[in-house]
């Protein structure tokens, strides 16, 4: 049900939109649309064909140890829990998303200025630490287990949901005192990446089956909203992903 959307229900398919909207302009098309979009061949698709469900090869670890993964997976689920509205961060794959992000340039702060000298600075001057995001996660995860152990003699993911919330709250409010990193800054990062994992395009490993988008009524990657932009009624649409764009 999730992988197949009837393309006819979509407001406009990319190709018919491009053909019909006069985008192929006569004369000088310097500013015009990418010709490659028009030239692209439709992938052969038989009507009524249902793709067989395949394993999700994306769900393996690039950075976390299995232990770290369990902590993060449990924490994400408390930040964005499963409820009557739909799946939580766990089912949406948010922890895989975070794992994959930390494995890449973002985890290495590759595009951040990381040269010294390092000084503490004022809050308004932003992050001034020398630790990279992946190192902050390493420390933060370890400290979550340490703190859980100190309270309940168990690791974070072994606690009850209520106990987990208490631990997270203690990090959020800096009740946990850490020396190398700020507990609240780590929590803020965990929260932000959880939301990214819930709502980023599924191509990154989270927002599985676009269910995060569905709950929020966000239609994902649509080519155009000209047909609904003026209307008073709310437009409910089945979301589309970048994968649909690549293979559509």
């Amino acid at each position: 049900m999730l992988e197949q959307h009837d393309r006819k229900e979509q407001p406009v398919s990319r190709r018919s939109f491009l053909k019909n909207s006069g985008l192929v302009l006569g004369g000088l098309v310097v500013g015009g649309v990418a010709g490659s979009l028009l030239g692209k061949q439709q992938a052969p698709q038989q009507p009524g064909e249902t793709p067989a469900p395949t394993a999700d090869f994306n769900q393996a670890l690039m950075y976390f140890s299995p232990e770290q993964f369990k902590v993060v997976d449990a924490a994400c689920e408390r930040i964005y829990p499963e409820d009557e509205l739909g799946p939580g961060a766990k089912a949406l794959g948010a922890a895989y998303f975070i794992d994959h992000q930390l494995a890449g340039e973002w985890g290495f702060n590759a595009r951040d200025y990381m040269q010294g000298p390092f000084y503490p600075g004022e809050v308004t001057q932003g992050y001034q630490g020398r630790l990279k995001r992946r190192e902050i996660f390493d420390i933060g995860i370890q400290e979550m287990n340490n703190y859980s152990n100190s309270l309940h003699n168990a690791r974070f993911y072994e606690l009850t949901p209520e106990q987990q919330d208490t631990v997270l709250k203690a990090f959020e409010t800096d009740e946990v005192k850490l020396t190398t990193i700020s507990a609240s800054a780590f929590f803020a990062m965990l929260r932000a990446t959880t939301l990214e994992g819930v709502y980023a395009d599924p191509l990154y490993g989270g927002n599985k089956n676009m269910d995060g988008w569905r709950m929020k009524k966000f239609p994902g990657n649509q080519m155009a909203y000209t047909q609904i932009i003026e209307q008073d009624e709310f437009a409910k649409m089945e979301p589309l992903s970048l994968r649909d764009h690549q293979h559509g």
Binding site: F17, S21, G22, L23, L25, G26, G27, L28, V29, V30, G31, G32, V33, A34, L37, Q222, M223, A224, Y225, T226, I229
Partner: peptide, 20 residues
């Protein structure tokens, strides 16, 4: 220079325009 109309795609600020 001829260019096409905006499609109100909602990915504009911080994004390049795929329609020109």
């Amino acid at each position: 220079v001829s260019r096409a109309a905006c499609q109100y795609c909602g990915f504009c600020e911080r994004f390049g325009c795929e329609y020109g």
